[in-house]
Design a protein around this nucleic acid. Structure first.
Length: 430
DNA sequence: AGGTATTCACATGAAACTATTCTCTGAGTTAGG
DNA sequence: TAACTCAGAGAATAGTTTCATGTGAATACCTGT
């Protein structure tokens, strides 16, 4: 999959089968533009060697500028090698600072080390952000139990029953189990800290096995307002991941770029530019990698042999547009109607809009679309939400005798509003 | 001219209501001993 | 008989509505010069 050569081979043979299946004799067809395009693509050298290296899921062998952290993690977790319980760890850092990466890397290495010996050690990783998987107490415990190989029904059992199943499975054999709870702050925000309390207390109920918890959070204030008992036991060891600065980001990028791109296919100014862009956004390595990947794709599509600054600029634009598009797509229907009315109004009007006229347009749209009309009170809240998302700009002003209202204008570039409007029109049957 | 009161058009808060999702329970079903 | 499945009840939650109160400055009105 990762090797472009095999990928191309695979798809071309598939294509052949397909054409045979629907019985279009290739010889009878005139060569057309598409054939040329495919030929071009196949014959041309790709500037990528392995694009997967730039994806978020990729776990690289070398993690630059996190040596200290990995070492510390290793030191804390090392007792597991001797079948002792390592201290619980609380890991904190903003998104894209390499928390998850370092933890998984260290755990993989430990498991690798244990392989072949008789000490039993395993780890389970759970991302609490994922809806429908780990966003309630029941689901977390059920997922954990599943990770350990127990069968748990999706619903129908009392929580403590699932808890018992989990406990039983855990205590089946003599082993050290390391539990990684990623984005633990979300879990606690949604369900409270009871699970954490029971998980931190679980060791006293276990006879054979030992459990070690690693909590990963994006939010440092999170640890301040949880149950002090949980706090002290989860935070036996704490590890803070500071954001990367531009120089470190550049190192990370060049590290990955060497295995992702063909040699000499990146203009020297490109990596610093990517790094600077991400450093601006609180040192998020994810962003930097994303930008580089998209820039590479842009360059490849433009048949360039080198990723240049122009490609970066285009990629930046593209990523931003994608972000907005995704954001709008995931909005609830009522908000979509609202934003569509804002687009409609701002098309015919140059100056700023106010809540009242938006509400009117929205109400009419609802009628046409056979949708229930929300109250102005609610719309007022929805407008604030759109403002927080950065889709519109709104501020409260007082117009004296003419009352107090919000001044609103869309911050989305006009060419994008056209695209979104088209989408919405189709989706909302307007 | 200067000061005060009014007024507009919503903003903002709190409480109440509603629909949906979770969790729990008990009853029915199934499979294996 | 244990394990599983499932429907229904109650609890929790998110989304909304209703009602009440707050807000800031343009404007209307008043007062004294």
């Amino acid at each position: 999959m990762s090797d472009p050569q095999t990928k191309l081979d695979g798809s071309s043979s598939e294509e052949k089968q397909d054409t045979e299946a629907i019985k279009i004799p290739t010889t009878a067809r005139e060569r057309d533009e598409l054939d040329d395009l495919f030929d071009d693509f196949v014959s041309k050298k790709s500037i990528f060697i392995n694009k997967d290296v730039l994806s978020i899921r990729h776990v690289p062998k070398i993690i630059p500028h996190r040596g200290e952290h990995i070492k510390k993690l290793g030191m804390i977790l090392a007792p597991a090698l001797r079948n002792d319980r390592p201290s619980n760890i609380f890991v904190y850092g903003k998104t894209g600072t390499g928390k998850t990466l370092c933890v998984l890397h260290t755990l993989n290495r430990i498991v690798e080390r244990v392989k072949g010996t008789d000490s039993a050690l395993r780890f389970a990783y759970l991302n609490c952000k994922l809806k429908k998987v780990a966003d309630t107490e029941y689901r977390v415990i059920a997922s954990l139990a599943k990770e350990l190989g127990a069968k748990v029904p999706v619903t129908g059992l009392p929580t403590d029953e699932v808890y018992n199943i989990f406990l039983k499975k855990l205590d089946e054999q003599e082993q050290v189990v390391i539990l990684v709870l990623d984005e633990i702050d979300r879990l606690v925000k949604k369900t409270g800290d009871e699970i954490l309390y029971s998980l931190t207390r679980i060791n006293s109920e276990l006879k054979k096995s030992k459990l070690c918890l690693i909590g990963i959070s994006n939010d440092v204030r999170f640890i301040e307002n949880i149950d002090p008992r949980v706090k002290s036991s989860l935070g036996e060891e704490e590890l803070i991941f500071p954001p990367y600065n531009a120089l470190e980001l550049k190192d990370i990028l060049s590290e990955r770029a060497t295995s992702a791109f063909v040699e000499d296919s990146i203009h020297p100014a490109v990596l610093p530019k990517c790094a600077a862009y991400a450093a601006k956004e609180h040192g998020d390595a994810r962003r930097a990698l994303d930008l580089l990947r998209v820039a590479g794709e842009v360059a490849e599509r433009a048949a360039a042999e080198e990723v240049k600054m122009d490609h970066i600029r285009e990629a930046e634009d593209k990523i931003e547009k994608n972000r907005i598009l995704e954001l709008v797509k995931t909005l609830p229907n009522q908000s979509k109607l609202l934003i569509y009315s804002i687009f409609l109004l701002s098309k015919n009007k140059t100056d700023k809009l106010i809540t009242g006229e938006i509400y009117q347009t929205y109400a009419e749209l609802c009628k046409v679309n056979d949708n229930s009309i929300l109250t102005q009170r609610r719309i007022s809240d929805l407008i604030s939400e759109l403002d927080m998302l950065g889709l519109i700009n709104a501020r409260v002003i007082s117009k004296g005798r003419h009352g107090r209202t919000r001044e609103i204008y869309s911050t989305i570039p006009t060419d994008l509003t056209e695209i979104i409007s088209e989408d919405l029109r189709g989706e909302l049957r307007l």
